[in-house]
């Protein structure tokens, strides 16, 4: 069942320039939320909600954690909410990542695509290698959280100011020369997803990608968040909110 309501923010901090980290107390939602799903948040004074992916779920404490970037006036408004205040959201929405316990996973996060990777990597602990890429050291987020949940991390920055210099796709290519994971998860810019999907295909590894699109209802009724997909050889417009946001990479026409 979808829930809509106002839930209390129990912690909030800026973790990089324009990147905010919020923990929200919402037991009725947390209990049914899986990694890869998203929440649809109302921004005071704006007509449409903003979809934000779930970064961590704590079913015991009844909390969800979201990490989001201020992209425009709406997300800026959401970022101004403080600890103790209420946030209006619809959740949990969409299809999350399919997880295969005991298997080896590689998670690839590009910039603000990193938060959903934290959630799926949490399911794998030491069996997950998480490759993250950022523009520079000042934009790096969530590396300590990944390490704390036992993940192996590979950090890349475009300018080499933190971790290795280069793109996540270079690091992934190198890794695949010596290892064969069972599954690859990815979230980030389209160009990155396309490259990751094609490497996964070449190496015969199943791959799941989390997509983003401008949304209306968030539940699959209004059909605005279309993305070109292919199933059984037939092209069609799937909808990121209901058919996704996680898709098998081979079904997405990047």
């Amino acid at each position: 069942m979808y829930k809509q309501g106002k839930y209390q923010i129990i912690s909030k901090k800026a973790i990089a320039k324009g990147i905010y980290d919020m923990e929200i107390y919402c037991p009725e939602i947390a209990v049914q939320t899986e990694c890869g799903q998203f929440v649809h948040i109302s921004a005071d004074g704006f007509f449409l909600r903003r979809p934000i992916s779930v970064c961590a779920v704590d079913k015991v404490r009844g909390t969800l954690r979201i990490v989001f970037e201020v992209r425009g006036n709406g997300t800026d408004k959401i970022s101004q909410l403080n600890k103790g205040e209420l946030i209006d959201m619809i959740a949990p929405l969409g299809n999350g990542f399919k997880v295969f316990p005991g298997k080896k996973a590689v998670c690839v996060g590009g910039g603000i695509g990193t938060p959903p990777m934290l959630a799926v990597a949490a399911e794998y602990g030491a069996d997950a290698t998480v490759i993250c890429g950022f523009r520079s050291a000042s934009a790096v987020i969530l590396q300590d959280d990944l390490k704390a949940q036992g993940n192996r991390t590979i950090l890349c920055t475009d300018d080499g100011t933190a971790g290795r210099k280069g793109f996540v796709t270079d690091a992934l290519k190198e890794l695949l020369e010596t290892e064969k994971p069972d599954v690859i998860y990815a979230c980030g810019p389209d160009v990155m997803l396309r490259a990751v999907a094609s490497m996964a295909k070449e190496n015969g590894i199943s791959c799941q990608v989390s997509l983003e699109e401008r949304m209306g209802c968030g539940v699959g009724a209004c059909l605005v968040c279309a993305c070109k997909a292919v199933k059984n050889g037939e092209e069609y417009f799937a909808h990121v909110c209901k058919d996704g946001p996680v898709f098998p990479a081979e079904e997405v026409m990047f």
């Binding site: 007509f47 449409l48 699109e213 949304m215 209004c222 059909l223 605005v224 417009f237």
Partner: peptide, 20 residues
């Protein structure tokens, strides 16, 4: 009917545009 290519929605002051 397949509908139009995305983006299909744009926010406006007190409303929205759609081109589903």
């Amino acid at each position: 009917k397949a509908g139009n290519p995305p983006p299909r929605i744009a926010e406006t002051p007190a409303g929205m545009l759609n081109s589903v």
